[in-house]
Amino acid sequence: MKETRLGEFEEVLLLLVGILGDEAYAFKIAEEFESQTQRAVSIGAVHSTLNRLSEKGFLTSEMGNSSPERGGRRKRIYTITATGRRVLIEARDFKTSLWEQYPGFANG
């Protein structure tokens, strides 16, 4: 298995997959990323990262249904795995613990 730490981009994508649920495929994720972060991203970049997250075992995917605007082609729907969920929680907890040690913000 490859490296299991999450990069920032990877973390966001993982979260977006969770948010989008049944609609989590490369194009939708890229759109959602752009609208949520106001940062441009290419589908290729998103796809590549999704692929990497799958190799790490944080995501699984299967082919979903097709739609006319895709020229009748099916989409690959990504789903977060248990490991994926765990690293997300770990990442959040780690950051929270850091925040708690931060003096000025310690009490909110």
Binding site: A26, F27, I43, H47, S67, E69, R73, R74, R76
Partner: peptide, 14 residues
Amino acid sequence: AEEVLGDLEEKFHY
């Protein structure tokens, strides 16, 4: 090919 072409086409129409 299938998923990528599909994604790109969707993006194109969008």
